[in-house]
């Protein structure tokens, strides 16, 4: 009985892995640079509204956020509109002035990004804006989602 000998390929079957650490390091540096570690826990509900003519904020390090929206209560209920800065809800609107001024001293080119729930009333926002004016933080940004451009 004829016996066929399996022909073996002459090339090695291993993938060279010596460059793998370099590739991994490259990815690592990419994610290290793009990552933003601290995210606040939202105590208010924020559903951003949409707008067409928006711009991107490239320098995320300059941005500090103010959240305005209905307060989240236990059992999925929503309370009145509240202002949240960092991790706490600011009951006293007048305190925003001091907080934002302190932040401005740390970073002169600060941009305040206002993340406001779409159904929140303008009244609270204007009070906050008045405080921002007093705190000399004039650069603001109304955070919105992008809407498909018309026409």
């Amino acid at each position: 009985m004829a016996h066929f000998k399996k022909k073996q390929a002459g090339t090695k079957q291993e993938v060279p892995t010596s460059a793998m650490p370099d590739v991994v390091f490259m990815l690592l540096f990419f994610f290290m640079v793009t990552t933003v570690l601290r995210e606040v826990t939202l105590k208010v509900k924020i559903d951003l509204t949409k707008a067409t003519n928006i711009e991107k904020i490239e320098e995320k390090r300059l941005v500090s956020y103010i959240y305005i929206g209905p307060e989240r209560l236990p059992n999925n209920r929503l309370g009145n509109d509240k202002v949240q800065i960092d991790d706490s809800i600011q009951e006293d609107i007048g305190a925003i002035r001091t907080i934002m001024y302190d932040k401005l001293l740390e970073e002169q080119r600060m941009i305040v990004s206002l993340r406001v729930d779409e159904s929140s009333e303008f009244g609270l926002l204007t009070d906050v804006q008045e405080e921002l004016k007093q705190a000399q933080t004039f650069r603001i940004n109304y955070s919105t989602k992008s809407e498909a451009t018309r026409n």
Binding site: I54, I57, N141
Partner: peptide, 17 residues
């Protein structure tokens, strides 16, 4: 941990008080 979401919005400059 990374979140790649660029903040978009309408930029404004407030007037002095």
């Amino acid at each position: 941990t990374t979140t790649i979401n660029v903040d978009t919005g309408i930029g404004m400059v407030l007037p002095p008080p």
